[in-house]
Amino acid sequence: MAKKKETKEKKPAQEVNKEKKASEAKKSPEKKTVPDQKKVPEKKETKPSPTGPDEVRQRKQSENKQENSSKPAPVAREKSPPAQTKWSPRQERKQKQAKAAKQREQKRERRQERIKEKKVKKVPPAVNHFWVTYLRPWCRRHYILVTSSIALVFLLFALFLAKDTMDKQQQQPRFRHPTVTDKVTFHVNINNETSGDLVLGLYGKDCPLTVENFVKLSTHEVGYGYKGTKIHTVFPGHMLIGGDVVFNNGTGGRSAITENFEEENLKLRHLSPGTLGMVGLKNNNDSSRSSQFYITFGEATGFDGIAVVFGRILEGLEFLKKIGKVEVVGKSMRPNKLIVIEDAIHEKA
């Protein structure tokens, strides 16, 4: 009997394992038991050994990649700090120049950005088409004609501006004349053929005594004067001389003022045609030309500081040119034609 119990108690190991699995399955009924299956080893595909050159090259490349991946990564070395250099003015100057260059570049970039931002008016397509297809090729073919025509236009424009400026300069006086206080009009006759008027403006504030003498001789206030006298001397292109109230040939003269006075205000200059001056105005025993006057046909700067300028022609410069064209005789400069002052009228300016 004892032997039978031992045989009952001792069970094989396989049965014990099955009972354990069955008890576990009862406890967890949701899980399904799957019978053990033996793992079948997978068959590895054997690649044929490379025979061609391309396959050999690919194999070498793959081996190199594997070797590179197996190698450890290189350790980065820490850079040593740069050695401190001594300060020098050259380095500072270079730094300033570099900084200034950088600032200029930034300004240039900002300027270009602003230009791009501005709205540019687009050229109409028709004009652009005409320029691209017709005008630009023609200009390239005839570039000599185009450049010469442009230069000609600029030259004509410059000449026009130069002429305009010259006309303005001629219209505007180069200097300022003194104020005119009196006017005397001479009615002159040339050989009973032509006649005209010369309106003379007198500077009473600058030359008071000379103007007073000339006005009295013009109005015959003292009983004699310029009425009926002739222009006795003509220097072509230079001046005419008249006013000899005594001999009427340029050898005499007489003042209308009894008081003695010397030449006054020699600062006024002979800078324009029609300048009126007095010849040797000195009322003394030595003076013989105290009534003679002259009128210039142009500039006569050689008489500056020598003779007294006391007036100018206001009207009648064209008639004065006619008198200047009269022919003269020899060195005496006497005109061939008789030039007479028929009348003289005075008025206040």
Rank of each mutant, 00 (worst) to 15 (best):
M1E: 03
K3C: 01
K4G: 08
K4C: 04
K5H: 06
E6M: 13
T7S: 13
T7W: 00
T7Y: 00
K8D: 12
K11F: 01
P12E: 09
A13Y: 08
E19V: 11
K21F: 00
K26Y: 01
E30F: 05
K31D: 12
K32C: 01
P35W: 00
K43H: 01
K44C: 03
K44I: 05
R57Q: 10
Q61S: 10
E63A: 15
E67D: 11
N68D: 06
S69G: 05
V75S: 15
A76P: 14
A76E: 14
R77F: 02
E78I: 10
P82F: 01
Q84M: 04
S88K: 13
S88V: 07
P89T: 01
P89W: 00
E92S: 09
K96R: 13
A98Q: 02
A100S: 10
R104C: 01
E105S: 03
K107S: 15
R110E: 06
R111T: 04
R111V: 06
Q112K: 11
E113L: 14
I115D: 09
I115K: 14
K116M: 11
E117N: 15
V120Q: 12
V123T: 12
P124L: 01
V127E: 07
N128L: 11
F130I: 13
F130L: 14
L135A: 14
C139K: 15
Y143W: 08
L145P: 00
V146Q: 02
T147S: 13
S148E: 09
I150N: 13
V153Q: 03
F154N: 06
A158M: 07
F160I: 05
A162E: 08
K168T: 07
Q170C: 10
Q171F: 04
Q171T: 01
Q171Y: 04
P173I: 06
V180R: 11
T181N: 04
D182P: 02
N189E: 15
N191T: 07
N192M: 09
T194I: 15
G196F: 02
G196C: 10
D197W: 00
L198S: 11
L198V: 09
G201Q: 13
G204W: 03
T210A: 11
V211I: 09
N213F: 00
H220E: 04
E221L: 10
Y224L: 09
G225H: 04
G228N: 12
G228R: 14
K230M: 03
K230I: 11
I231L: 10
V234Q: 03
P236K: 10
G237E: 04
L240C: 09
I241W: 06
I241D: 04
G243R: 07
D244A: 11
D244W: 02
G252F: 03
S255D: 04
I257S: 11
E263Y: 01
K267H: 03
L268D: 02
S272Y: 04
S272E: 15
L276M: 12
M278E: 03
N284C: 07
N285E: 12
D286S: 14
D286L: 13
F293L: 03
F297L: 09
E299H: 07
E299L: 10
T301N: 14
E318V: 11
F319S: 10
L320A: 11
K322S: 14
I323E: 09
V326N: 05
V326P: 09
V328L: 08
M333H: 10
I339G: 10
E342W: 02
H346F: 02
E347Q: 14
